[in-house]
Amino acid sequence: MNAELKRRSTKSFAVLLLFIIIFIGTWTWLKRQPGVDETPKPFRQVLELNGAIWQALFNPTRLVHSPPPPEKKIPRVNGTLGLSENINPENWRLEVTGDDEDDNSPHLSLTLRDLQALPRTDSNTQLRCVEGWSENMSFAGVKFSDFVQAYKLKTMPYVGLETEDGNYYVSVDIESMMHPQTLLAYEMNGAPLLPRNGAPLRLVIPTKYGIKNLKQISRIFLSATRPPDFWAERGYDWFAGL
């Protein structure tokens, strides 16, 4: 009896010890893997896998339902990355490239008036930050899908957007860009955009975290390959879909 007790006990605790060693070893190994965009490779692969799953499951008919923002609410400004104080809406141009890998693809240089002449969409929406907070907002602008249609751009798998100084840049899958609530917005909460909120033109994409909602867009291009993305390069999930 005592011998059996001892044998089973020893065996089980040896297994537990082995389990602990394997677990700590695996975790340490995982964390020490070379980084891909500031994330150890296995973690990055899981982020990409999660992104692929939710991209495959993406249903463009699902909308963000949100009440209008409270009146006179001052919108939260969470970052000024890529923002320039000296943008003059009169001189500002939106540079659009139909295919960034094809020199013969259509190239547009648009004024704010050009964009305001396109069909206008008003939208109550919710901006959700990757940090965890969210805010009800209203925006007016042109749907990206209307914009693509108006200028007869050929859709490509990815869209890249950049600020004028190039310090902030995002890339988004085309399905999310063509979502009916994705706007190139020039008004916010019933008034023209302020510079710190992204004037003259900003992306509003409520199916993504706020990190994709680029302010002060200067350049938009479509691409067959995934363009660089500022926050994905800094450890965040590239898809960032909600």
Binding site: E38, T39, P42, F43, R44, V46, L47, N50, V130, E131, R234, G235, Y236, D237
Partner: peptide, 14 residues
């Protein structure tokens, strides 16, 4: 460590 936390959370969750 928000980015690190999110990457960990979404791996361990599965």
């Amino acid at each position: 460590k928000l980015a690190e936390g999110m990457a960990m959370h979404s791996l361990i969750a599965w």
